[in-house]
Write a protein that binds this DNA or RNA. Structure first.
Lengths: 197, 197
DNA sequence: GAGAGAATATGATTAGGATCATAAAACAGG
DNA sequence: CCTGTTTTATGATCCTAATCATATTCTCTC
């Protein structure tokens, strides 16, 4: 997370989006740096059959879309507002200028990328490993960790079964059945249809 | 890729490993920065049933293992020498010192991470998308791109079917059948058992 | 060039998640 | 409170990659 004033000093614009709006699409050139000011943004792909895969969900203070900007490639996914949302937006030049003028911020961005890479490395091996229950537990644990929640069943998962399915590459029905089975095994709790872990 | 002399000036050691040696294991603390001097290193996971998943294969000039170093987390995978290999090794302190004293190198590392994140984003959505043939084509295209090869069937894939399986999370038999099917469809060629794309 | 080990190949069977169909419960908004 | 929509739930069937078994081809070394 980069300090708001620092962003504004480097020419950031605050842009508002309504729920469902797309900020950019897969295949487009990466032109901007984004940091969420309010609301939630998801990055996702749709495969040939229209099935969604959610790369990540970003909320206040989190930045997204930097990799293609830095790697000089097209966006590998779409960005869409899950709720009404505002984002700080910097052009590529402004962003690179910010990085070079502020080593601390640069290191912070590098660290953020490293963390995400760490997460993706886990996800990709976990997803490839097949077992639905594993996939689900791992992503829940990751989200719990991100939200810095400690202790058993203290973490309430704020995702629908469908979103969980889209994050793991599974089907809703499979997620529903798997979460129930995991509850039976004592790995998680379900109260009022919400998952706790 | 960081210049060899620059690495040595910052206290890098050149360390030799024999084929099959492990440089570090999943779950260990990240202590060093690594860059391949010769040979090839793979990063991999083994799941409960002992099935291997290859996170990536790194050859001369490529660095690996930075994410956990920067993110301050345990290694998410093992590193193992595929062939006899030498690597430059920097301690965490030396590496961070190098980054802070040399913004150009820092940006290069950031860019490298961004590229890998881009690749992982594609792989994770592709792997989740199921279809074996897709997964295989995508990873081949990525490797071709990394090796900067252009033109149809100009790229010779230097991987065994088993390695391809471990990179995609599929089984050898599935990879063998899928590559044959892809050859039939004209998506790739197989000459002397080697895959060309 | 013979023999051993690795890699590729191929058929038969199984298993488990996707898919399809349908229902019921929760929720939002007037 | 009623109504339409979203989310969760559950059974039945299908399909495809995993698994198992076995064979063939290639490669490397002595």
């Amino acid at each position: 997370m980069i300090d708001e004033n620092l962003l504004l000093n480097h020419g950031a614009k605050k842009v508002a989006f309504s729920k469902g709006d797309q900020l950019f699409r897969e295949g487009e050139s990466a032109l901007n740096f984004y940091q969420v000011a309010s609301g939630e943004i998801k990055m996702n792909n749709y495969n040939e059959e229209g099935k969604e895969f959610i790369q990540g969900i970003f909320s206040i203070g989190q930045s997204f879309g930097e990799p293609p900007l830095l790697a000089n490639v097209k966006y590998p996914a779409n960005a869409e507002a899950i709720s009404d949302a505002e984002v700080f937006q910097l052009t590529k030049e402004q962003f690179l200028q910010l990085l070079s003028s502020n080593p601390t911020v640069h290191l912070k961005i590098t660290t953020t990328l490293a963390k995400r890479l760490y997460y993706k490395a886990i996800m990709v091996s976990e997803i490839s490993s097949q077992e639905p229950e594993h996939r689900i537990l791992r992503i829940i644990d990751y989200l719990k960790h991100v939200d810095k929640v400690e202790g058993e069943f203290n973490y309430k998962l704020n995702l629908t079964r469908q979103q969980l399915a889209d994050l793991t590459g599974l089907r809703v029905e499979t997620v529903i059945r798997a979460t129930k089975s995991l509850e039976k095994k004592g790995e998680l709790q379900i109260k009022k249809r919400k998952v706790y872990r």
